[in-house]
Amino acid sequence: MRDAFTAVWRSPTGRIGLVLVVLVLLFSLAGPFVIPYEPNKLDVLHRFAGPTTVHWMGTDNLGRDLAVRMAIGGQIALTVALSTIGISLVGGTLLGIAAAYAPARIERVILVLFDVLSAFPPLIFALAIVALLGPGLDKVIFILAVTMVPHFGRIARAQTLSLKQAPFLDATRVLGASAARLVLVHVVPNIMGPLVVLASMDIPVVITLEAGLSFLGIGVPPPRASWGGLLHDGYTSLTQSPWPVTFAGLMLILATLGFTLFGEALRDAIDPKLRAAP
């Protein structure tokens, strides 16, 4: 792992990515402690202020401080991204390993399930569910996680299949290891590399999807701040002030670009073969 980070730091784009990721993380996590404003405190007299030394990023249509709202939005984006990817990583890995060890018939069922799940366009899928069941962060996370399961499942299965014949696994089995021990202690650590790479490359994808849903007003419910929601609110009052849109868009671009560059450098460091996968 340490070697991987060294390799990321050595590649010029990886370094830019890492710096951006660290900056976004620092801003989102430390922002609310450093910025002396409440994210939901209204101050209508000072609405649509430009960036000043008092309000670093200006204020929005209700006079709320934009900087602290951007930081909260960052926390939400990261929470959604990490929990979504965490769920689909665990679910996909277990299903993938199960497919590799299961009898052919069950393997087929799992593979068809992967095909069907990945055939749904995630955004439209999320849109339909949220439109019918009402908005909510938990639903967004669940939907996005489900559509990403096949992504991890396919790689986990392929990795397990190529690992299955390894002599050390036979040895462990002969020594009397249980199936659970075999999978959790011996298989999972050995197939984790490419899965971690995929997970890191999915972070910007999930951030974009969450922001998109919030932009449409069906992701994170207001008054909670989210980058997508801030972008949308800023867009509806674009003629009064260009600042909310500028900063919300900038945060999204920096975060997605940072995580993309970081993820690609990590991939090149850990598993260059994955490069072929679209």
């Binding site: 910007p204 974009t208 849109v245 868009g249 999204l252 671009i253 997605t256 993309t260 560059l261």
Partner: peptide, 21 residues
């Protein structure tokens, strides 16, 4: 990479900001 990473709705909003406003 920058083009791929940028969410299209951010691009759309920025295009309106630049070309229209």
């Amino acid at each position: 990479v920058a083009f791929i990473a940028m969410p299209n709705f951010v691009v759309a909003v920025f295009l309106v900001l630049i070309f229209s406003v």
